[in-house]
Amino acid sequence: MSDFPDLMDLAYRILDDQLVDVDGRRCGRADDIEFEGGLGDPPRLYAIISGSGSWHRRFPRRLRGIGARVFGNGVSGADVIRVPWNQIDEIGAVLKLKAKARELGLGQGDYREGVRVAHWPKS
């Protein structure tokens, strides 16, 4: 826990957290966190990365190759979505977003399957 109540540990508190869009729809997890700024510049929190395509980079080195094959190797917009940090509305039990999941490119899998399932009885 941080000694300063108004500070928050990134990896401890935000990494791996649930993303929920403005309509309350669960739409992915904070699978990675991205900073901007090159060497010599002050780093600034830039984006949350969501999607299984980013997982292999967190695996032990030997398992990264197979991880990329199983969970995707990080195609932006497909198996990895960048959510700009300024789209985060609130940090609570979940990371609440300011926009709808679809506008940010999140929750595509649920959307795709949802269209199919909608044809089923009592769906």
Binding site: Q18, L19, R25, R26, C27, G28, R29, S50, S52, G107, G109, D110, G114, V117, A118, W120, K122, S123
Partner: peptide, 12 residues
């Protein structure tokens, strides 16, 4: 995985 879930939600 962070998907939507719930037994009370509509299946779609």
């Amino acid at each position: 995985a962070g998907w939507e879930w719930g037994k009370y939600r509509r299946k779609r």
